[in-house]
Computed example of a mutant assay.
Amino acid sequence: MHMIPASLKKMADVTALAFLLVAFLTGIASALQTPTLSLFLTTEVQTRPLMVGLFYTGSAVIGIVISQLIASYSDRSGDRKTLIIQCCLIGAAGCVLYAFNRNYFILLTIGVVLSTFGSTATPQLFALAREHADKTGREAVMFTSVLRTQISLAWVIGPPLAFALALGYGFKTMYIAAATTFVLCAAVVWYALPSMQKTTVSEAASVESPRQNRLDTLLLFIACSLMWTCNGMYIINMPLYLIQELQLSKNLVGIMMGAAAGLEIPVMLIAGYYAKRFGKQPLMALAIISGLVFYIGLMVFTQVWLLLALQLLNAIFIGILASIGMLYFQDLMPRQAGSATTLFTNTIRVGWIIGGSMAGAVAEIWQYHAVFYIAALMCLVAVLCMLKIKPA
């Protein structure tokens, strides 16, 4: 027991448990919708593959604009707790629309806008958690890392549950379940999470090296976007690479993804524990180098046990990016927790926009494994960006 960090002991109270529960519920709400979206659009809305791709791209672009506007508003005024409740309820309304509407353009416009509000609840939750940790004297890095593991846990449980509901009971039932999750989440936020009053930014804090901070933030944004692009290309092309090029079992795809998701949880906790000792910049560099070796390994190895072993590197790559990357943005943007967290979330959207288009184009011109060469080159650019960020 003496080896348990003091920060973990501090977290064992009602408020911290409420944060963990809300993070898990928002993760479940997202994991119920995202994995089945392409199947929903193809079978229920009956759209062509091109229109499915357009839906993903349009969703990401609309999501970036709306979420950043919400984030800027949240940092300037208003109670973040109230905003999270509103986002959850609007997200629930979006789920109800998806449950009963089958018009493509209504879903692409109204549906995507409502869904974006729902997905924005997560970065706002992490922003509130950071403010709460700073105010109460908690170890913010470890607190956020444990919080982030709840999202990973939700994504271990959510996708199988989503397919079970959609295929067994229909998409209407699945989306109603997601809406119910959002409403439950809003209730927990209302009753258990703290309200954080906005503080006035001091003149000294507001003028502290703004140009350098903006440059560092831009470099971090580019690095994280490239990392998420690599991950997006991998998720899109890896199943086709294993099944069509290597002629391996379809079950291996699920095993590899499950192994990576499971390994990410301890990676996040370990990274959170050692972030204060080694710093966020070296950990992010370690993540990118792990990603580089991972993608090179995919080009070299074809044996099943080696492909499974490589998932440890993939878990280090994504686990550190998902937990430490968010905190790094918050450090570079003090007193702007909402904008910083949403900016990090938008690197995921940018990664999917670029990764989605590149994965198809590269596979069309060359072969499925060719994306791993592109991913390795992107990792090299990302690590250069990371090294150019001014050390704290």
Rank of each mutant, 00 (worst) to 15 (best):
H2A: 15
P5Q: 13
S7N: 11
V22F: 08
T26A: 03
S30R: 14
T47C: 13
V52T: 14
S59C: 07
I66E: 06
G78R: 02
D79T: 14
C87N: 11
I90Q: 06
F100T: 12
N101V: 15
N101A: 15
R102I: 09
T109E: 07
T120W: 02
A121K: 11
L125P: 01
L128G: 04
A133D: 10
K135G: 09
R138Y: 15
A162D: 06
F163Q: 07
F163N: 09
K172W: 07
V183G: 11
V188R: 08
Y191M: 14
A192N: 15
P194K: 04
M196D: 09
S202L: 12
S202I: 13
S206D: 06
P210L: 02
R214M: 15
I222M: 03
C230E: 00
M233N: 00
N237W: 01
M238Q: 05
Q244W: 09
E245A: 11
L246T: 05
S249W: 01
N251F: 10
G254S: 09
I255K: 05
A261H: 11
K276D: 15
R277T: 14
R277Y: 13
Q281A: 11
I288A: 02
I289D: 04
L292F: 13
I296S: 07
L298N: 04
M299C: 12
V300N: 07
T302C: 11
T302W: 06
Q303C: 08
A315V: 03
I316V: 11
M326H: 04
Y328K: 00
R335S: 14
G338Q: 00
T342Q: 04
N346Q: 10
I353Q: 00
I354D: 01
I365E: 06
W366S: 02
Q367T: 12
M378G: 10
L384R: 08
L387P: 06
L387V: 10
L387I: 14
K388S: 13
P391L: 14
